[in-house]
Design a protein around this nucleic acid. Structure first.
Lengths: 330, 330
DNA sequence: AACGGTTTCGCAACCGTTTGTTGTGTACAA
DNA sequence: TTGTACACAACAAACGGTTGCGAAACCGTT
């Protein structure tokens, strides 16, 4: 037998469905006596409101869309956990859309959000995204959007990001303090198409130049994944101008170079000083302590979700970029 | 201005909405000429079908619910990725429900699935779940359910699991081969309330006894998280009956004992033989190679999702338990 | 008894789409 | 010319719940 509806309750009591609806949602236009009988029958029948009907009527699905470019072991799981926590707290459901770093998938996902009538969208852009016009339709229909982590620089939108430039500067500062004699510093960065890469390079480069360190040509290398990072690092290490210190832009990069470090039995920090930007998980698995600038995927997800909820609640907030706190660990 | 609807197109062309609907979905009862004009107008207006209306009409939301107990850095991200991949391929959306190892949240999530009209549900049970009657309503309404990983033993349901007993046996076999002289073997397991813990203990215990190894009393310990595992291992290591080999039931356990291994500068495998059940990510970050039985969260998610899709497609499959392949790595 | 005000509930439309049924017009065969 | 088959499109109900409006019933007041 199918699920009981409001109509079933109404028939049972010889009243109108509208009255049942009102009673169930506590509308004062229903007498206490009748409301009680309705509640009773509803309980006995095991009535549960049909969200699809409610969604259609209300024009929104009480759901938050989360569009992310990847689900790597680090970072995004924390983001998902934080977003889930915040949105569930407020009774929202979470629709996960994975763009797999593809602009086509991202466009598709934006459309799904529009068609599904999500109440708000959280977006971390794919590597291929060089504009955000595919979010125009959502924007136009009044659906709040918060971009986080991988955002489009210069865009006028609500953004929550990690202060990449600052994080890099902090890392360089720490490196410089610990290894004033560092003769060659290598910076390994992620995909140069991502804005976060730009930010982190800027901090790295500027801080070093302020400290009077002249960057040579191959002192900044790009890797689009962990393996590439490992390969590039190996090249440098086996070359005739070994780095004495290495800066990893992210956990993925750090993971990539660890293999080479183990294989070549490089002693940390005696032979090589390693510093990274990390969310703190990976450094905990390593056999030596390395300093890192802590960026929290959890914190980022939480901040972005909270901001989105405020926008959904019609808080009059101007588009702005919010920076999370970062800290030096160890 | 609001999104254009089928009605808007109909008015534009002085025809009936039903004709527009039929034309747009290629029903043969509409002449080619009219169909073309309708398509044109739809394009010009930027028409997109409203999924909320479609869902209500069809009685399902073209969505898969994924209920998981936790979002730790290992395992579940791979599961999510696999499920997303498979379901997206078939045009389904993915609703993530996080039970946070709480039975109440799990019940709540099951209700959400019912209310939202999901087409199918993928469930990994929480530690507190000792029955699955809260999925009865979904089952009764004809919504297919596939349980995976953390399942209820003995239940009649579609299940996809890792052969935990077999995995443990393989690990013990390998351990025994590599360290025939192992004088004391320590097994560290997860929460004893989980069925997967039972399975893995069974394999561990049985295989060892078959090999003629007599387990002492504190040779099997339980840890509900990584920190606890680390603490328990430390105790054993600092006691006067050090283990010479340790078996970690999962990545989480392995992660927990690594800290102690580093701190005590234990040489692997000379001083301590380590073997684990793992999805392969964590062992790659360690400074030494350890053998492990590879269990794939990705494979598990994929198999479970594929099975669920078959059930949704009304494949007449009897409730059964499917075991994934596991292999010894290194 | 007539009045105004309030409480309480029914009626019907609506959200956007789908679909069974009915109706119209045309073409073709008898 | 009548009958029949078919192509095409309109009508209306339905999915389940919500809500503006109106109406009946009841209250106390004069």
């Amino acid at each position: 037998m199918p699920r009981p509806t409001i109509k079933d309750i109404a028939i049972r009591l010889n009243i109108n469905p509208s009255t049942v609806s009102r009673a169930l949602r506590g509308h004062p236009d229903v007498s206490a006596r009748l409301r009680e009988s309705i509640r009773e029958v509803a309980d006995k029948l095991g009535y549960r409101p049909n969200h699809m009907a409610i969604n259609l009527r209300r024009g929104n699905s009480h759901t938050i869309g989360l569009i992310i470019p990847e689900i790597s072991p680090f970072f995004f799981p924390s983001v998902i956990r934080a977003v889930e926590e915040v949105t569930h707290e407020k009774g929202y459901n979470l629709l996960i859309l994975h763009s797999n770093d593809s602009i086509d998938r991202e466009i598709e996902n934006a459309e799904i959000c529009a068609n599904m009538g999500v109440d708000g969208v959280l977006v971390s852009l794919s590597r291929q995204s060089h504009d955000i016009e595919h979010f125009q339709e959502l924007e136009a229909s009044g659906t709040p959007i918060v971009f986080f982590d991988k955002v489009l620089p210069g865009s006028i939108a609500h953004k929550v990001v990690i202060p990449g430039e600052q994080a890099s500067r902090m890392a360089v500062e720490k490196l410089w303090k610990d290894q004033p004699s560092a003769s060659r510093i290598l910076g390994i960065f992620g995909d140069p198409r991502m804005s976060i890469t730009d930010d982190r390079i800027k901090g790295f480069r500027n801080k070093l130049s302020e400290l009077g360190y002249a960057l040579g040509e191959p002192d900044i290398v790009f890797a689009s994944n962990a393996e590439e990072a490992g390969g590039l690092f190996r090249e440098q290490w086996q070359g005739n101008n070994r780095p004495t210190a290495v800066f990893a832009m992210s956990d993925e990069i750090l993971a990539g170079i660890m293999q080479t470090i183990y294989e070549s039995k490089i002693r940390i920090p005696e032979e090589l000083y390693v510093i990274s930007i990390s969310d703190g998980e990976l450094p905990g698995y390593l056999p030596f302590r390395i300093p890192y600038i802590r960026t929290s995927g959890y914190g980022l997800g939480k901040a972005a979700a909270l901001l989105l909820l405020q926008l959904i609640m019609k808080m009059p907030l101007l588009p702005d970029t919010h920076f999370l706190d970062v800290e030096l660990v160890q």
